[in-house]
Design a protein around this nucleic acid. Structure first.
Lengths: 259, 259
DNA sequence: TAGTGGTCTAGACCACTTC
DNA sequence: AAGTGGTCTAGACCACTAA
């Protein structure tokens, strides 16, 4: 069969039509989850298309996370529903909280501590484990207006990072990554409400007992170890955290990247 | 030039080698951000490969979000660095806040209002616009323990949804989507601290003035219209919001989906 | 109109998995 | 050994964009 110019102008590309047909067969259960769908050769004949076109169609399904393809084995159905999902993307953990570019961190205190039960619970770390705590205030560089009270807990071997804070407004995790060669592999963020105790309220220039937004961030390095936990406390009213999810597709990261 | 069997066994595929070469030229600034890289025909001759192979290489860059391809125009460099990014994925907005499965919503009041300046600011909606406000309390189904105070604002035409609340613990947006055929296209979440006023504190069984975690969620439908905004207020101490980012790649959603 | 990327065909060899 | 998906070539027509 020879196909000349496309008959209808507003038509979808051929591989898209094939992909939709396959998708439909998966949805209706014709191709069950966990089973193999016909091989490329079969699809070529059944859809009367070249192998390239069939492969392009299968690539669509793969990118959607609907199937998994394995050389020598075949194409396995992973999911019956094309699951739309909401995706949020940040390029670096710093974007989790874009502090004003021109902020500064002033170290008030640095000491080595053992976590008591309560603190261990708040930080989701082991009670009794040893950390270096760096306490300070983050302020605007120009006006000096306080942004938040911060308690930064780092593993003792990174304690010297305290001396490097304050020079720049950059987040602590970034300085650690740079200085000690850590790579942030995972960030876990917990947000909750609190109430400012006297010392913190005073430093922030608000009344004691003022409501606060607390953010606990746990940074996990390449070896799976949490190397920093920070708790930032913002007075109510001058800070909110906002993010957005957009409908998208779960995209399988099926290719790996060297370096 | 005829290429026989691959000479070295552990070699990368050809399209990968070409992709790496291009990536390198982007990193070193040979191909600047914002400019076009050579066309496919050029790359075919310069890398001595077929068009298919060259295109496969370019697809790698595109999937990485490094370049954007446009028919008739060319391939534009978007970024100089292969940006690893942190990706969070949720399958439905309900996962943004997985209320306990067995929660119930009790409607206390429902009325039509016009947003005043202050409220419009908090909801990020137009002052003076008309909404139906459904006020209520979300509680645990079994113990009856209060979870949060909720003010749900929906566009007036969906006001009848108030009658359907309470039957199930499901989120309001989900009921609206089902009942009126809306499709949630985007969700914007803002988190901030507040202080519970008397009426709310009483309903939640805490002292007036207790700190609270407030969550404002804006749901946007397929036509780009925000059809629901909800504000949930949780007393401090019994609620925290936690999420996690894992290092991954920015995957460009370069294909669109019908339906 | 020339050049770009998008789609498609026909045919080939290869690596891997399963039997 | 047979079948699968992975890679690659050579050649073609198309739709779109910009000069």
């Amino acid at each position: 069969m020879i196909r000349g110019k496309t008959a209808n102008k507003a038509s979808q590309p051929r591989y898209r039509v094939i992909a939709d047909a396959l998708l439909d067969e998966i949805r209706t259960g014709r191709f069950a989850v966990g089973t193999l769908i016909p091989g490329e050769l079969d699809l070529m004949t059944s859809h009367d298309a070249s192998r390239h076109t069939v492969r392009e169609a299968l690539r669509v399904l793969e990118d959607m996370g609907m199937v998994e393809r394995r050389r020598g084995r075949g194409t396995v159905v992973l999911s019956q529903d094309a699951r739309p999902s909401f995706v949020q993307m940040v390029h670096a953990p710093s974007e989790l909280f874009s502090y004003p570019e021109n902020s500064r961190f002033r170290v008030l205190q640095a000491d080595d501590i053992k976590l008591n039960r309560a603190l261990a619970g708040e930080l989701a770390c082991q009670a009794g484990s040893e950390w270096t705590r760096i306490t300070g205030l983050r302020t605007m560089a120009d006006s000096g207006a306080p942004i938040c009270w911060s308690d930064v807990y780092v593993v003792p071997e990174y304690a010297s990072i305290a001396q490097r804070l304050g020079r720049s407004g950059r987040p602590v995790y970034e300085l650690i990554a740079e200085t000690f060669g850590e790579t942030v592999q995972r960030v876990q963020v917990t947000i909750y409400a609190g109430q400012l105790e006297e010392r913190k309220a005073k430093a922030l220039g608000v009344a004691p007992g003022t409501a606060s937004l607390k953010l606990c961030r746990r940074y996990e390095g390449a070896n799976g170890r949490v190397f920093e936990v920070s708790v930032a406390e913002h007075p109510a009213g001058n800070f909110s955290y906002s993010f957005e999810f957009t409908r998208g597709w779960q995209t399988a990261n099926h290719w790996s990247w060297s370096q």
